[in-house]
Simulated scan of single mutants.
Amino acid sequence: MTLLVSGLLLGTSTVLADNRDPLEPVNRVIFSINNGVDRVLVRPVARTYHWVIPDPMEQGVRNVFANLGEVRNASNNLLQGKWRRTGAATGRFAINTTVGLVGVFDVASRMGIEPVPEDFGQTLGYWGLGHGFYLVLPILGPSSLRDGTGRVVDQWQNPLNYVEMEHWQRGSILVVDGLQTRADLLASDGLFSGDTYPVIREAYFSMREFQVNDGEVKSDAFIDEDSAEEGFVDEGFIDESF
């Protein structure tokens, strides 16, 4: 979540037209629908959820879903040849699933084993595949051709897919995950006004560059030289924003 907000702040100084968004008219329609659904339904429910659920319980929910993601983290670190990070993700999953009571408690972090998030979109980026064109997915929001494909692969790695349960139970779990994610973003509501579409687009690309490069972002990775010369970019701001 911190990365997303940081990316949004960065995006305000890099709102540039480029050829990464050939589907902009369609993307804007989906973006508008997503915002409408969020304003009318998702945000009010997330606010109620945040108000009703005690903070320790919210943290437990975050921990459980983060623990499920460790399987994805481990496999993608492995695909990138990051052996220590693979071991860390594997260890976190083993420790938090057992000692941490199915991930409710993040025991691994208390032991000094920090999370090492990776997804298949990052793996493809690590091996040199570019973003492809920008996509706004229904409900899910900002993505790209590369990362949208990666989402499909990552979904296969969710341990819940291999647990027998009723459809309503699986759906309820997805709703809780979504509500917690939206509740965590409530603090950033109203941070920007006006046409936020290009800001979010640029923020998404810069955030993904940050993640693919494990925290090392070069300004020329997503901004052309002409734009930098015209004063759109403050390189010091880029370096310090994360």
Rank of each mutant, 00 (worst) to 15 (best):
L8I: 12
L9D: 03
L10M: 14
L10E: 05
L10G: 13
L16H: 01
A17Y: 03
D18A: 02
R20S: 13
V26W: 14
V26I: 15
N27Q: 07
R28Q: 08
I30N: 01
F31L: 00
N35W: 00
G36T: 07
V40W: 14
R43K: 15
P44G: 10
A46H: 02
W51H: 13
V52I: 15
P54C: 08
D55L: 14
E58D: 13
V61R: 01
N63D: 10
F65M: 05
G69K: 03
E70I: 06
N73V: 00
A74F: 11
N76W: 06
L78I: 06
Q80N: 07
G81T: 05
R84D: 09
T86P: 04
T86F: 09
G87Q: 05
A88H: 10
A89H: 06
T90R: 01
T90Y: 03
R92D: 03
A94F: 08
I95N: 02
V102I: 13
G103A: 08
V104Q: 07
V107E: 00
S109P: 00
G112F: 04
V116G: 02
E118S: 11
D119G: 05
Q122E: 09
Q122N: 08
L124F: 01
L129A: 10
H131N: 15
G132H: 10
F133H: 13
F133C: 06
Y134H: 09
L135P: 09
V136M: 15
V136Q: 10
P138I: 11
P138G: 06
I139G: 06
S143W: 15
T149W: 15
V152R: 07
D154C: 12
W156E: 08
L160I: 15
Y162C: 07
E164C: 11
W168A: 14
G171C: 13
L174F: 13
L185S: 08
L186V: 05
L186G: 07
D189K: 11
P198L: 14
I200R: 12
R201S: 12
R201T: 06
R201D: 14
A203E: 07
E209Q: 11
V212W: 03
N213P: 07
N213D: 14
D214N: 12
G215K: 03
A221N: 09
A221C: 02
D234W: 04
G236T: 08
F237S: 00
I238F: 13
E240T: 06
E240R: 09
